[in-house]
């Protein structure tokens, strides 16, 4: 589904990722773990199409060159990024935003757009599953939301847009244990044969609830070690310094 080869990235001449390789197949859950400044967020930014990076190498998503696609086109193809710091957009109602987004994607895929009633039904259902306070959907997007609510809102958007590849950028940071469980439930509910996940995290805490198929350790812009779920535990015990 996703194939990254020889990816290197610079920002203002500072090298962040070097010779990065990763392959994710349909249905797989990969976790990338690394300390602060190892290049984790750069990876999610590049995959989602954020501007400002000087990028070399190749990223194929379902055999299409990802770099030839605009940010929104990647979203249309089924890439979803749950942001580490979800943005506040003043004045824009959360429901309106979600509906606009969903229908933009449906339209790009040539699917039938949802009308207001169909959409509300869907959103209510998903909000209930994720224990997301419905009242908040009527509020301005992320404005006045707590850190945890913002993260849950990202997962809600993910479950409504139903992407093929979901990238979770430190979604666990700033969550209390209940919120963490809810987020994990949301992800697990979406785990299907064809849906893949890339979970970017600092701690293995989240991985207790979302069992990854593969764990990779990212240090100084490179994957230095890959393994199964047990690698996460090892990291937790030894720390990043003593791995390898």
């Amino acid at each position: 589904m996703l194939k990254i080869s020889n990816l290197s990235a610079k920002i203002e001449n500072k090298s962040i990722l070097q010779d990065f390789k990763l392959e994710i197949n349909p249905g797989e859950v990969h976790a990338i773990m690394g300390p602060n400044g190892s290049g984790k967020s750069t990876l999610s930014n590049i995959l989602s199409g954020k501007k400002g990076y000087d990028v070399k190498g190749e990223v194929l998503f379902e055999n299409i060159d990802l770099f030839s696609l605009e940010t929104e086109e990647r979203a249309h193809k089924g890439i979803f990024l749950a942001f580490q710091y979800p943005l506040e957009i003043p004045g824009v109602n959360t429901n309106v935003f979600l509906k606009t987004s969903l229908n933009a994607i449906k339209k790009a895929r040539g699917e039938k757009e949802l009308d207001a009633i169909q959409f509300l039904k869907l959103v209510k259902e998903k909000a209930k599953e994720l224990k997301f306070d419905e009242e908040k959907l009527g509020r301005q997007l992320n404005v006045g939301f707590s850190g945890g609510e913002k993260k849950k809102n990202e997962i809600l958007q993910m479950s409504i847009l139903n992407p093929k590849l979901s990238i979770l950028d430190e979604t666990d940071s700033g969550l209390d244990i209940d919120a963490l469980k809810t987020v994990a439930d949301g992800v697990n509910a979406l785990r299907k044969k064809n849906n893949s996940f890339l979970i970017i995290t600092h701690y293995q805490r989240l991985l207790e609830y979302i069992k990854p198929d593969f764990v990779h350790v990212l240090m100084n812009g490179k994957i230095i070690k890959s393994g199964g779920p047990e690698l996460a535990l090892e990291l937790e015990k030894k720390g990043y310094e003593n791995i390898n």
Partner: peptide, 25 residues
């Protein structure tokens, strides 16, 4: 803000329209 909206599938003009409408709400 633009990046966030585009990541959710809106093209730049739609994203601007949405954000500006929010600004004017």
């Amino acid at each position: 803000q633009l990046h966030y909206c585009q990541q959710r599938g809106l093209n730049p003009e739609e994203a601007v329209g949405l954000i500006v409408n929010g600004f004017c709400k």
